[in-house]
Computed example of a mutant assay.
Amino acid sequence: MLFTWYFSSHSITHPTYFIEDEIADRTIINVIQSRRSIFGMLFIKIIVQILLDLVKAIPLFCLVALVQQIAFPTDWVVTFVTFLLSFVVIASLYGLGFLFASFSFVFTKISSITSLLAYGILFLVGFQEQSSHLIATLTRFLPFHLLVSFIRQPSWFVLLLLLGYGLIYWLLGYLCFQTCLTYAKKKGSLFHV
């Protein structure tokens, strides 16, 4: 779950950082005028960032597991499936990241809010028992509880729910992204001037 939280915190923040950088550098207009979509350009940047993060994270988390004497499952299939499902959760949350990033077209400094959200997600991952009814309720809006449930007791139903979360997040993220981008272009406020 620590591995999933690490990548999930990036999935909430990186799309916003990338959009804000493109707006600040004034390169977003070049992307708009090219044949490649902004959404596609961000997607490629995210893939590269995930690969870089994997190079850093896997050795680090293996070292943490060795120091903490965490026992890995002896069944490699279970480990591989758990690893893949972690990336399903991470990919799902990138859809949510695109939702937040879309507000960068309309407002400034959205990355400050997403940074706070990324740290707030730490309390919703499921490391510890939920201390309040509010936190337990908020946890249900994120797919972490389903990943924990699947790790404890694999189920096709939980797998389908995880995929459903991802589909909902990506639909919301994509629709909001396109709506805010169109609004900013029509209003002429893409650079917040």
Rank of each mutant, 00 (worst) to 15 (best):
3 F>K: 03
4 T>R: 03
6 Y>A: 12
7 F>S: 00
9 S>E: 09
10 H>D: 07
10 H>G: 01
10 H>W: 11
14 H>Q: 03
16 T>C: 02
16 T>S: 13
18 F>R: 09
19 I>W: 01
20 E>A: 00
21 D>R: 13
21 D>G: 08
21 D>V: 11
22 E>G: 01
23 I>K: 11
23 I>M: 15
23 I>A: 01
23 I>C: 07
23 I>Y: 05
25 D>C: 03
26 R>M: 08
29 I>R: 09
31 V>C: 06
31 V>M: 11
33 Q>N: 06
33 Q>W: 03
34 S>M: 09
38 I>L: 12
39 F>V: 12
41 M>D: 04
43 F>I: 05
46 I>G: 03
46 I>N: 11
46 I>L: 10
47 I>M: 15
52 L>N: 11
52 L>R: 13
57 A>R: 01
62 C>L: 15
62 C>G: 14
65 A>D: 10
67 V>P: 01
72 F>L: 14
73 P>G: 12
75 D>A: 12
76 W>H: 02
78 V>T: 12
79 T>F: 06
80 F>N: 14
80 F>E: 13
81 V>D: 07
83 F>N: 03
83 F>G: 01
83 F>K: 00
83 F>Y: 10
85 L>F: 09
89 V>M: 14
89 V>R: 08
92 S>I: 07
93 L>K: 00
94 Y>W: 10
95 G>A: 05
96 L>N: 11
97 G>I: 03
99 L>D: 11
100 F>T: 12
102 S>M: 12
103 F>V: 14
104 S>Y: 08
106 V>M: 04
108 T>S: 13
109 K>P: 12
109 K>T: 15
110 I>M: 04
110 I>T: 07
111 S>T: 02
113 I>C: 09
115 S>C: 02
117 L>V: 14
119 Y>G: 14
119 Y>R: 13
120 G>N: 09
124 L>V: 13
125 V>A: 02
125 V>W: 00
126 G>V: 07
126 G>T: 05
126 G>C: 02
127 F>C: 04
127 F>T: 07
129 E>M: 14
130 Q>L: 09
131 S>K: 06
131 S>T: 10
132 S>Y: 02
133 H>L: 14
134 L>Q: 01
135 I>Q: 10
136 A>Y: 00
136 A>F: 03
138 L>T: 10
139 T>I: 10
140 R>D: 05
142 L>K: 07
144 F>P: 13
145 H>C: 02
146 L>N: 12
147 L>V: 00
150 F>D: 04
150 F>R: 05
151 I>V: 02
153 Q>W: 00
154 P>M: 11
154 P>C: 00
155 S>F: 08
155 S>N: 15
156 W>N: 12
157 F>E: 07
160 L>R: 07
161 L>E: 00
163 L>S: 01
166 G>N: 05
167 L>P: 08
167 L>A: 07
168 I>M: 15
168 I>W: 03
171 L>I: 05
172 L>C: 11
173 G>C: 04
174 Y>K: 08
174 Y>F: 09
175 L>E: 09
175 L>A: 06
176 C>A: 14
179 T>R: 08
180 C>I: 03
183 Y>A: 04
183 Y>K: 02
184 A>N: 12
186 K>V: 06
186 K>L: 08
190 L>I: 15
190 L>M: 06
191 F>I: 08
192 H>S: 02
193 V>W: 06
